[in-house]
Simulated assay, not measured.
Amino acid sequence: MISASTTRTLVLLAGLLLLLFTANGALAHAVAEGDKGYIQEISGVHLLSFAYLGAKHMATGYDHILFLLGVIFFLYRMKQIALYVTLFAVGHSTTMLLGVYFNVGINSFLIDAIIGLSVVYKALDNMGAYQRWLGFQPNTKAATLIFGLFHGFGLSTKIIEYDISTDGLVPNLLAFNVGVEIGQLLALGAILIVMGYWRRSRGFWKHAYTANVAMMCAGFILIGMQLTGYFVS
């Protein structure tokens, strides 16, 4: 007989895999074809449009969601959650804005592989692997900020590939970034609701390790997909 706590855990793990395998395209940061065409065709200031695109990207970016899930997995106090999410947002925003403005791009397969690595890193951190392997705990705040920088480069690389117009570039990028943060808050809110429900169950601590193993596996799959794309492209 499967217990209620086990059922909830299985639902959570299925959700993680669903986020990964139902995403469109091999690249976590790929922009939908319709949005791509829109970005390429317009010029001038379009604040609402770019804010919408930013929110849509963040809310549907499964790599972002997996990393955020890992970051807040064992955080209970809103002050702590706000601190870590802010560090991620600062990193993400900095490289996205500067990368596009100064036309600094990185191979999209490689940057997305590093983003997959961020998911693996955080899952291992949650499992206490570094304390066992290294004898100390790496700085989690610094790791969140650093990986946030890579997540931002992932998006800036795709935007550069789509030749966004320089007319109205700065306000459009700022609007896009505002949208990204709105999408991040929406995704975070959904994660906190699910996690809050799961944490109240007796099976949370029993299955937390398994959930992070699943998260780690999803990260390795992301890495494998991107490296395969890099070598065969």
Rank of each mutant, 00 (worst) to 15 (best):
V104E: 06
F21K: 14
L83V: 06
F102T: 13
F147P: 00
V170K: 14
A51L: 09
V100L: 04
L13G: 14
T86H: 05
L13S: 14
A28M: 11
Y101T: 08
F153L: 15
L18P: 03
G183H: 01
F73P: 06
M1Q: 12
L13I: 15
F136A: 08
G203C: 03
T157H: 01
G135W: 13
N107Q: 09
M215G: 12
G203D: 02
I223S: 01
T228M: 10
L69Q: 10
N107D: 13
M1Y: 07
Q137E: 14
L186W: 08
S49G: 14
L173R: 00
L18W: 07
Y209V: 12
G179Q: 00
M216I: 03
G44T: 06
N212D: 09
H57V: 02
F21A: 13
F88E: 03
R132C: 06
L48C: 13
F73D: 07
I72D: 09
G99C: 05
V119C: 11
L53C: 02
G224H: 04
L110H: 04
L19R: 05
S93E: 03
L110E: 04
L48V: 15
I191M: 14
T86R: 02
C217A: 15
K56Y: 10
Y130V: 14
A187E: 00
T210V: 09
T228V: 06
S118N: 09
H207P: 00
I146W: 10
I106V: 11
F176N: 00
L17W: 13
V100Y: 00
G183Y: 00
M195Q: 15
